[in-house]
Every structure is written in C-alpha cells, then in structure tokens.
Write a protein that binds this DNA or RNA. Sequence first.
DNA 1: AATGAATGAGCATTCATTCAT
DNA 2: TATGAATGAATGCTCATTCAT
Lengths: 206, 206, 206, 206
Amino acid sequence: MTKTVTKPDVCKEEAILSAAVHVFARAGFRGTDVQEIADRAGVGKGTVYRYFGDKQELFWGTAFWVLDKLDQHLTNAISASDSPLGKLRATCRAYGAFFETNPEYLEIFVLDRAEFRGDAPPARRERHEKMIAEFGKIVEAGIAAGEIRPVDARNVVLSLGSTLYGSVVCAAMTAAGDRSLTEMAEHAADIFLTGICAESSKGSEQ
Amino acid sequence: MTKTVTKPDVCKEEAILSAAVHVFARAGFRGTDVQEIADRAGVGKGTVYRYFGDKQELFWGTAFWVLDKLDQHLTNAISASDSPLGKLRATCRAYGAFFETNPEYLEIFVLDRAEFRGDAPPARRERHEKMIAEFGKIVEAGIAAGEIRPVDARNVVLSLGSTLYGSVVCAAMTAAGDRSLTEMAEHAADIFLTGICAESSKGSEQ
Amino acid sequence: MTKTVTKPDVCKEEAILSAAVHVFARAGFRGTDVQEIADRAGVGKGTVYRYFGDKQELFWGTAFWVLDKLDQHLTNAISASDSPLGKLRATCRAYGAFFETNPEYLEIFVLDRAEFRGDAPPARRERHEKMIAEFGKIVEAGIAAGEIRPVDARNVVLSLGSTLYGSVVCAAMTAAGDRSLTEMAEHAADIFLTGICAESSKGSEQ
Amino acid sequence: MTKTVTKPDVCKEEAILSAAVHVFARAGFRGTDVQEIADRAGVGKGTVYRYFGDKQELFWGTAFWVLDKLDQHLTNAISASDSPLGKLRATCRAYGAFFETNPEYLEIFVLDRAEFRGDAPPARRERHEKMIAEFGKIVEAGIAAGEIRPVDARNVVLSLGSTLYGSVVCAAMTAAGDRSLTEMAEHAADIFLTGICAESSKGSEQ
DNA sequence: AATGAATGAGCATTCATTCAT
DNA sequence: TATGAATGAATGCTCATTCAT
C-alpha cells in the first residue's frame, strides 16, 4: 500500500505550508530540517509527514502554494487595467511587488529550479501552462488592437516571464543595494514593452 | 592556527575544479559528496580539503572558475564586432551559446544563487562589477555613437544581465522542448535591443 | 488504572487475529505495522488496542490462537488411529500437514521463538505442558503395550516435538526445493519411531 | 557507484562481528541499534557502515561468521572418532556443546531464520551445502561399513540437521530447566542413530 | 604533500500508543 | 464503543571534516 496522505485539517495544512516557506527559504531544501517546520507550525513531525508524505512532496506543495498566490496576485493586477499593454505593465509591476513584499516566495522559486529542474509534478506544469496561455491571450489582444507588433504570443510570454524572473532573482541577489525589485521589474518592463510595441504606438508608449 | 590551504599542483587544482563542476551540477551543493569529486578528480579526499579548505570554499572556487570562463567567452565575442550594438548582440549570442554548450556551468550559476544568495566572497563580487563596468562602457559608446538611447548605462547592463540570466535559466528549465538556449538568448536580445535603440536607428535594427 | 482491555465483539477479535497472523507472518514482529493489521481486519487502529492492549499482547494472542489450532488439528489426528504407535505416526503426519497447509502459522511459531524466547505468558506455557502430557500418555500406553521401548515419556515427547519443529522449520527454509513439509515430517517420524521401538537388538550401539 | 565497503583492519572487523553477535542475540535484528554495536565494538558508527555497508549485510556477515565457527567446531569433533557412527555421535555432541557454550550463537541462527527465511546470500547457501555434502560422505561411509542402513544420505543428513536444530532451539526455549543443550542433542542423537542402524529387524514398522 | 580510514553530528522517516470526538 | 488524527521517541544511514601514516 502506498504512503497514506490525508489532510484532515485545512488550518494545519496552511500552518505547515506557511512554516515550510519560511524554513525552506532560509535554509534551502537540503538544509531544511523538517523538525523545524513542524515546530514552527506548532504540530508534531509526524503530522507533517501525514499531510505531505515526504520532504520532497512537502516542498512541491509549498512551491505550488506560492505559485498559486502569485497567480492570484497577477490575476488581480490584470483586472486593474483595460488595455492589453496596460495589463502587461501592471503584471510586471505586480510581479516585482509580489516578490518584494514576500522575499521568501522568491527563494522558493529559486530553490525549485535549483533542486528539481524539470522534475516538478504535472500539476505544477499545468498551472504554469495555464498562466502562459492566459498572458498569451493578452498579447494577442494587444496585437489585434494594434498596440503590439505581430509576434509569436507564446514566445513573447516566455520571454517576458524569463525577463521578469531574471530581474527579480538578480535584483534580490545584489542585496537590494541598487533598486527595489519592483523598480527593477518596471525597468525591465519598460525596455521589454517598448520593444514589442508596434511602430504606430511608439510615441504614446514612450 | 587558521586552516592551511595550499595549491602546490595546478593540474590537481584543475582536475578538482573540473570534477566539482560535474558533480555539483548533477547533485546540487548539499547533495554533493566531496568523496565523489575526489574520486572523479583522481585524488584523495584529503587533497581536496588541502586545496580548498572546506566544501563551501570549493564551491565558491568552482563558481569563480566558471564565471572566469564565461568572462573570457564573452570577451572573445565582443571583439568579433566593431559597433557597440553589434558587440551587445554578439554578447547575447555568446551568453546563450556558452550555457548551451556547457549546461553544467548553468547549474553552477543556479546553485550559486540558490545556496549562497549574496554571500559570495569579495573576489567574485569584484569580478562581477568588473564585467558590469566593461559592458557599461560599450553601452556608453553606443549612446555616444547614437545607436542607443540616452539611458543609465549601469541599469541597462544590469537589466540585460538579468534578462539573459532569466532566459537561459528558464529555457533550460523547460527541457529544451521549445527552443535552444541560444535561440532564447537571441530572442531576448532582439526584444531588449530593439527597445533601447534610438528612434533614428530603428530601421536598421529591425 | 491498568490498561483496559475488553473484547465486546468476538467477530472482530477473530478478524483481528486472522489479519495479525497474515501480517506478522509476512513482516515479522518488529516489521509489522499495527495499522496494517487494523486495515486488513477492517477495524480502526484504536480497536486493535482496545482488544489487545499492545502489540506484544496482540502477538501473544495470535501465537496462542495458532497453538490452539495446532492442538485441535493434532487431537483430531490422534483419534484416527487406535494403537499408540499409529497415533504418534498420525500426529507427525498431521504436524507436517498443518504447517504445509498454513505456512503462515509456521512463521508465527518461528517469530515466537525469535522475539520472545521464553517470555511467553503463563497461559501458553500451560497449554504447551498440557500437550506434552497428552502425548506423554500415548507414549506410556505404547510402552505398556510393548510397542515402545521403556523410555522416559516426557523426554521422548520433548525430543519428538523438537524433531518435528526442526523438520518443518528447516524444510520450509530450503524453499520447498527438496520435499514437502509433510514428507519431511514423515521421514523424521520414520527415523524417530523406528528408533524407539522395543523389539530390536541395539546392543552394539549404546 | 555502489556502496563502498572496505575492511582495512581485521581486528576492527572481528570486534564489530563479536559485538554484533552479542547485540543481535539480545535484541533481535530489528530491535538492534547499530549504534550499540559500534559502542560495544569501540568504533564509530560510520566505521560499522564502512565495513558492512548496511545493517542487513552486517547481520549476514555475523551469521556467516557464526556458521563458520560451527563448521570448524564440528570439523574438529569429527576427527576425534574413526568410525562413521562415532563421527556422527561426536558431531551431535559437539553441536549441542557449541550452542550450550555460546547461547548467543543460537540466537543468531534463530534470527536468521526468522528475519530472512531463504534470503541468505549465496555464500552462506554454498557453505551450508558444503557441510551437508561433508556429512553425507560420512553417512555413505557408514553404509559401506555396514554400520548404517542403506538410506538416502542427503535426506538423512538433512533430517539429522533438522533434528539437531530443533533440539537445541527447543531446549533453549524451555529455559534450561530440564536438561542442557548437550544432553538434549545427545538424546536426540541416541534416538536418531539407533534408528538408522542396519542390524535390527524393523520389518513390522516399515 | 598526499592519502583515506575513522568519526559522529545530523536528518529523514516510521510507527506504537494515546485520546478527543 | 469505535475511530483515526496526532505525536515524538527511536533508528538507519550519510557525509563533512580530521589526522595518523
């Protein structure tokens, strides 16, 4: 019989995930002692294992949780603007702000990449694709509206994602001495968006 | 008495570093057994410690070694073109090609960020600043030549670095299914450069 | 207050014991997870503890249950023959057949010895003595009838028991490659009984 | 690369095996904490793992070590007598004496059966077969000399082995209250050997 | 200088047992 | 009475680091 995993209490699950973000972010995956997560969550170590099966699943659960929060945050940001370009700008700002407000979440993203490359469970891949598709539609709307040059939407979304990811990771790396994550992301967005704007709307964009 | 570290034999040092790249890249920092590096380098475990002091120093030595190789690779690429914009483009292409040719080097960069955030020893920070300054000069030359809009050179270099970093990391993450690292980096460069080009030179750039 | 143990439902008790035989036989005493016994018995883990107090008591209950079954099986076999020697032969055959039919029961016997040496609760010791006495009477009847040499009945019964135990354990160990448990037991009985028969002239050997 | 196991120091190996016999015999396989073996052997826990790889291999090493000692002990006993029957008798006596002198060795045998049924590594199986063959030759010599009835030598050896095993295990189980292991084994031998002697007229029984 | 044997702190995971519902 | 969620002590195994040879 495979490992039994049940989550009878949503509050405990949240407490564990919240503690896990904190500890993983500080100590890394391998450097984390599950006991510390349990202590910080106020539950027994056995409970952590009952809820998540093993340390890796716990980490994946944590990473998914964070991705979910990011998705919600970005989704909120999108609705704050009407034009496609405005939505993209808002997304970039929200992306930077999200990780500036929660530096621990950024660590989870970095660890995810460092420890598990492409081994993420299907659920996370699907969520990622969903987000890509979502933004792809915005780009296509921008193209239809003449705000964005006719480009391959998926590639542009991947590039924008890469740029934002690189911006926040690198900005956080240089110890906040220079500019905030949000400023970095906005600067990256400026450069990025100006580049993909159609010639006709250059004037209004810059 | 502080830890005695000497490197009497350059060949051994190279062998250890080469082995370290391999093993760190595969297993991560914490997941790496120093014994495996010693075995692969064909030296005793004690020798690794004599040459590098401890595991963390060994990793830093490895990361510095890789950064050095990247620097040389990019420096070569720069000289292949005369115009500032050409140099930047060539740099982007070279950046992608470097990590496409040596995926292990990319892992070292990712691990560096994941495990040690900003704890890198001064030597590496200095080297990093040196590279930033180097490219800053190119940007300034581009501005002077009218190829690049009047921007803050340092910020632009940081943004370009972030973009390239994000591009290769994310491209490698999506399991090569989409495009090669080099293509990703070039695509990122296209968007990036087009955005910072002065209005006057748009035509020739696109 | 001492541990409260009640068995309100005989069906559940049987279900637990039956499951326990299965799991203990497969995994050994220490290797057994009480949860698995509960699952297999279709009851909650708490119920197992309510019925048996703790894991050791559960095992002893299981071993006693099996011993009881063996006793019944051998008692039936005895009644199938009239002569003392016939009864002993029948007992040997039945002994082998019992464990051949129920290999799990043999594991319980082996585990019992391995884990608890002589720590068995008085009830099992008494039951064991009762069986020894029972067979002792048959031996004495055989002696009285002139079928068996005048030997110490208890010692002979202990030896026969040891021989049968050794036979089935060793036979089961050699992976059935050679002969069945029943054949092994019969062979052992042949040698054993022939040896204790009166008529022969064993002068040269003692 | 598979687990590296080296045994650079024979004294340490002996110390570990000796400690392992002691601890396994007292606590059983699962109940044994490898740390205790290390402590008793006066080495670090890591050393135990360096020498034996894992707990199971350590147990197998221990069991083999004991089997080896038994083999030597029995081999010595054999040479003390000239006639085949004498050799078999001497073997039985030696078998009982071996385990009476070293009750811990008996526990190892019992645990071996309880935990690993037939999973023993090939080396131990081969050693076992070698011993069976050795005694088979003695039985055949006995048959040739007319001391033993014409029986299947291998089967007889297996039966004798089973009988002796059962005798010592059962004798030890009944807490030495009755007779010593040696006496039990001799008694078993008496019954066993008398039965396989040629001269008698067992017609009515067979 | 080079080696690799020895060490033991550290950590993931399991599971007997309890007890609130 | 029955349940199963929660717990934390227990234990196998790893690996960074040291140091005698």
